[in-house]
Structure formats: structure tokens, C-alpha cells
Amino acid sequence: MTANSEIDMPAQTAGITHSEVTSVEPAIAVNNLNIYYDKFLAVRDVTIEIAPRSITALIGPSGCGKSTFLRSLNRMHEVIPKAHVEGVVQLNGEDIYRPDVDPVTVRRRIGMVFQRPNPFPTMSIYENVLAGMRLNANRLSKPDADEIVEHSLTGANLWGEVKDRLDNPGSSLSGGQQQRLCIARAIAVEPEVLLMDEPCSALDPISTMAIEALMEQLKDQFTIVIVTHNMQQAARVSERTAFFNIDGPGQPGHIVEMDLTEKMFSNPQEKATSDYVTGRFG
């Protein structure tokens, strides 16, 4: 089944190959999701399931809509005016796009780490970790706050490096440390899912390794979805990989196939996938 033939087919049977069906209840289930910017269809007809407590990588050429898709998973794409979706995204069986659901609540449960480290410049390292609570005016006792900071920074493999200078501004850290601070900030609010949008693309190789090692640890507690343009990274860290593609400029992005990472890189079902992972395009 080629990518082109999908267009004419009814959505339900659109040919995304799921050779490996997750045996457990999925953390996130996406059904026939179309994502629009105003009238422009950016991503069409995505149906995938994301397994809990594992790492799922989204790969594909630039402009194929993988970041847009990722941002639709915690309704961050709504920050852009007139962006909206059709279809269903379920978090543990609950539709996050139901009309009475506040996107703010969704984002508390599905955290996000961005491409470039973005600690709050007005806050210290300590305050940055607590930002999720403090900004929501949750009252914390000092011991509780200390506990959360230490726990989150430890979880982000940063505690040892910063424990003596928690009052320094977050921006005083190196790029890789800043990104781990952002991860600590995201996990401090104890989300169920962690979305990562090319978290290493602005970092040097050493920092990248540190983040990858961290992801390996975090997947015991969190469901992680990572967008990466780096196929080696996807191969190194993820259990499952989804390949997104685009037919041409102005066309909507769509998912080509999703499978266990091992299989995607050794024996993909679609030609487009094998072309991409072997470096023939993109």
C-alpha cells in the first residue's frame, strides 16, 4: 500500500500499518486526527496509539507536521490563533478535546519540553523548578518546596551540578543544563506524559548524551513522546517510532507507518520509510 493510495480511502481503513499492537491500554490514543491552521490542513488523519511508560519517537522530513502533531497532544498548538483540530485524542480514555475540557488542565497532565531551553529569565534555578506550582499560586511549605526541587532536579540528573547554586538565575547554566532544568521543571508538576520537541537540537553532543541517558531513566515513570530530526537518536532511545511524511509543499503531513523502532529501522513495510531511514531523502 503506497502513501498515495491513502487519500481515496475512507478514514477508518486508511493504511497505517500496525503490525505490532500494543497489548496494554494505551496512554494516548489518537483517532482520525486532522489539524488545521485556520483553513489550511497541516496534518491529516492520524490514528496511532502511544504505549505508556515507554518512549515513542516521531521522525520525518522537516515540514511534515510532526511537531504540529506533538503540540496537538497537549493542545499547545492552540496558542496559534485559529489553529484547531478534528478527531479524537484520548488521554487514558478521556477525550482531551471535549468542549468542556480546559486546555490548561490538559497541559498539567501532559508536560512539554521545547526545542530550545527556555528557563524563565526572571527566576532562579530553584524558582524555575517550582514554576509550575508557584505560577498556579499553589501554596507550598518550605520543606515541601525543597523536597520537590531536590526530587525533580535529581530526576533530571541535575541536582549534583546545581545544588550549591540554586539561587543563581536559571540562565546562568550551560545549554545542556538549562534543558535539563526545563525537564526538571516539567516533571515537577508530575505529569503523566512528557512531550519533547527536538529537545537536543540546540545542544552539543555531550549534552545530548546526558539528555538521552535521562530519558532512559524517565521512561520508568513517564510516557514520553519525542520529536527528533535525528534518526540515530530515535534508534537509540525509543521503543516505537512513527514516521511522518509529506507529499509535497502545501500538502498536509500524514503518518506513513508506526512500529517497533527496531523493525522500523531494519525492515520497514513502506518504501518511503526505508528510503528515509537509509538516508535516501529528507
Partner: peptide, 22 residues
């Protein structure tokens, strides 16, 4: 930078708090 607004929103902070506090 827009990134700061996004970072705050992604932490599940309401928009008005994001504006006032970030």
C-alpha cells in the same frame, strides 16, 4: 520571547497567570 509564554502554558498555567507572572 514566545518560548517563555509557551513554557508557562505547557506547565498548565492559565494564560492570565502566564501574562502576570512570566
Amino acid at each position: 520571547p514566545n518560548e517563555l509564554r509557551e513554557a508557562s502554558l505547557a506547565l498548565g498555567v492559565a494564560k492570565w497567570r502566564t501574562i502576570l507572572k512570566v
